[in-house]
Structure formats: structure tokens, C-alpha cells
Amino acid sequence: MPPVDDLKSEVARIWGAAPAAKLCLKIIDFVASLPAEQVRMLTFSNLCRVVGKRAPDGDLLTAVTILVSSKIHALDTHTLFIDDNQAEHEIDPEDLRDAKLSGTLVHPVSGELVSNYEAHLVPFFVPSPKLRGIVDAQHD
């Protein structure tokens, strides 16, 4: 059985016929179908298109939670900060943790405090090393 099928079987074994599990399988198939260099950033908009939804809903949020969970760990979560000039900056997890504790984010370039930083954050996902290994092996 190809490794991608092993991963899909694990999702099905743990989550059964839950609607979110079916979305997980679609997302895994999508990521596995792309060349590795094309899978660098998956946003909720991308994921909605992949699973045929107009907007994120509870099932998609659950699917993403399943895919980032330690049991499946097919995706890693990252955060993008888009400043007032529309410049994009990936935020380090420690900086995000500090912002949540203090209520302000230090702008990664200017050093200025951003008090309404949450309005400028965009979560995105990348294949975990586990899924990247599966994709790489499939495309070799």
C-alpha cells in the first residue's frame, strides 16, 4: 500500500465516516497530487476550494484540526502577519505567543507595537515533514 494510502487509512480508522474525515481525505489527496515545490502555503481559501466549500465551516475546521493533530500530523500550522502596507511577514510561534500574552505584537520589521494585530493575522498550513516525506517518495 502506498504511504499516502496508509495515512488515509489512519484517518479513516480513527475518525470513521465523519464528514470531517472525508474532507481530510480530499485534502491529503490534493497535497499528494502536487509537486513538492507547489505545496508551500495552504490557506483556508485554498482548502475551501479543495473540498468544494464556499467558506470554512465546522467540518472544515474539524478536518484541519485532525490534520494538524499529533496522531495524524499531516499539516503544520503557521501564521502570516499582513501589515498596513500589505507586506507579508511570517510570525515565529514564540512571537505569536508573546503577543497573545501581552496583547500587542512587535512589528517584525519596524519594531513598532501593533495593538490590533489579530486583525492582520492569516493562518496557513504546510505539509508536515511526515506528509512531505510521503509526497516526495510518491514523486520520485
Rank of each mutant, 00 (worst) to 15 (best):
M1Q: 11
D5V: 15
L7D: 00
L7I: 12
K8F: 01
S9D: 12
S9C: 07
E10W: 04
E10H: 12
A12L: 14
R13M: 09
R13K: 13
W15R: 13
A18W: 05
A18S: 13
A18Q: 14
P19C: 11
A21H: 04
L23E: 03
C24G: 07
L25Q: 11
L25N: 09
K26R: 14
I28T: 10
D29L: 12
F30S: 05
F30L: 09
A32F: 02
A32G: 04
S33Q: 14
S33A: 15
V39N: 09
R40W: 01
L42I: 07
L42A: 01
T43G: 04
F44E: 11
F44D: 08
N46H: 11
N46L: 08
L47Y: 02
V50F: 09
V50C: 08
V51A: 02
K53N: 05
R54P: 01
R54H: 04
R54C: 00
R54W: 01
A55E: 13
A55F: 13
P56E: 07
P56V: 11
P56I: 07
G58L: 12
G58K: 10
V64T: 03
V64C: 01
I66V: 15
V68L: 03
V68N: 00
S69M: 13
K71E: 14
K71T: 13
I72T: 04
I72D: 01
H73C: 06
T77Q: 08
T79P: 01
T79A: 03
L80N: 02
I82T: 11
D83A: 14
D84P: 01
N85F: 13
Q86V: 11
Q86F: 10
Q86C: 06
E90Y: 10
D92I: 10
D92Q: 12
P93C: 02
E94Q: 12
D95Q: 15
D95P: 07
D95E: 14
D98Y: 09
K100T: 08
V106H: 03
P108M: 09
P108I: 03
S110L: 03
N116G: 12
N116I: 08
H120M: 13
V122Q: 07
F124P: 02
F125K: 00
P127N: 05
P127K: 00
P129F: 02
K130A: 04
K130N: 05
R132E: 10
D136C: 00
Q138S: 14
Q138V: 07
